[in-house]
Amino acid sequence: MLAIRLPEDIEKRLDALAKATGRSKTFYAREAILEHLADLEDLYLAEQRLIDIRAGRTKTIPLADVMKQYGLED
């Protein structure tokens, strides 16, 4: 179970969409979360990786080395 508070304008838009399509507001909220959750997870992971690189906890590998390792060099 999840309860969220939305800005009034967003709530009105969501309500109008639900009424116009005969679907529930919950349906559209769930669809929006499912659509964007992977992107948010990727963003969080990228931000954490950048923090680790800047702090010296993670090292980078030059693209040429990765290409060579996987036999993809020109």
Rank of each mutant, 00 (worst) to 15 (best):
K68P: 00
K12Y: 02
K12H: 11
D39G: 01
A55T: 03
E8S: 14
A46K: 15
E73C: 05
A55Y: 03
K68A: 14
E31I: 12
Y70P: 02
A3R: 14
E41S: 08
D39Y: 09
T60K: 12
A20T: 09
L17N: 05
R5Y: 00
D65Q: 13
R49D: 07
A16W: 05
I4F: 01
K25I: 06
T26A: 14
G22A: 10
E47Y: 06
S24F: 07
I10D: 05
M67Y: 04
A20V: 02
Y44P: 00
L34Q: 14
M67E: 09
P62T: 06
K12W: 01
I33C: 07
R54D: 09
R54F: 03
K25F: 01
T26G: 10
A20E: 14
L17E: 08
T21R: 15
Q48D: 08
A55P: 00
E47L: 12
A16F: 02
E31R: 15
L72Q: 10
E8I: 12
I10A: 11
K68S: 09
L37C: 03
P62M: 09
A64K: 13
I61Y: 01
E41H: 13
A18H: 08
L17P: 01
E47H: 06
D39Q: 12
A3S: 13
K25T: 13
E31S: 12
V66N: 00
K25N: 03
G71V: 10
L43P: 00
I33N: 02
L37W: 13
Y70Q: 09
L45T: 10
A64E: 10
R13A: 09
D42G: 03
K59H: 11
P62L: 09
I33A: 12
A32H: 04
Y44A: 14
A20G: 15
R54V: 04
D42C: 04
E31C: 12
A16D: 13
L6S: 06
A38S: 11
M1A: 05
L43A: 12
I4M: 04
T21K: 15
P62K: 10
